[in-house]
Amino acid sequence: MKSSIYQSLAIKTLSFFLIWLLLSQSFDLLHMGMGILAAFGVAWFNTDRTASGLTIPRLRIVWYFPWLVGRIIQSGFHLSVLILHPALPIDPKWILHRTKLRTDAGIVLLGNSITLTPGTITVEVDSQNLLVHAMDDKSADDVTSFRIEQQIAGLFGEKGME
């Protein structure tokens, strides 16, 4: 999706202004005027003029988050059991995960999702390899089985994959 910088500037200004309205909740001319100025200023300074517009993944991203929350709750319970277990049956290990995702946004989303899931943390990332620290084999399963990655690959379409 290619859009001019003016387009992305307008989108950013509008969304910042909405957040301003939400947080200030005063609708007189002075406050709204200051809001639109501030929103435009922040958007102006934060628009990358070399990039070819915003690359927003499809609207399917809305479905990704409920799924991720489900995974988070499941592994959260698993981690709670591990912590509260009298014998503390943890078995921490490193996983070197080679991702098939190609887009930066996809890899960022993958790393964040892995860290957000209790029991796994992304430690180092280079272009394709993620070093993940996991609490035990069951926690690591979400990463090693490519389950999260397949969901993200679906979001970014086929071109994200090898």
Binding site: I72, I73, G76, L88, T115, L116, P118, I121, H133
Partner: peptide, 21 residues
């Protein structure tokens, strides 16, 4: 978890439980 677990790596797993869940 922060009190029981043995090192930085495992403890940070426990801390991330706070924020996420």
């Amino acid at each position: 978890g922060v009190l029981r677990l043995p090192d930085v790596f495992t403890r940070s797993h426990a801390v991330s439980l706070t924020d996420s869940l």
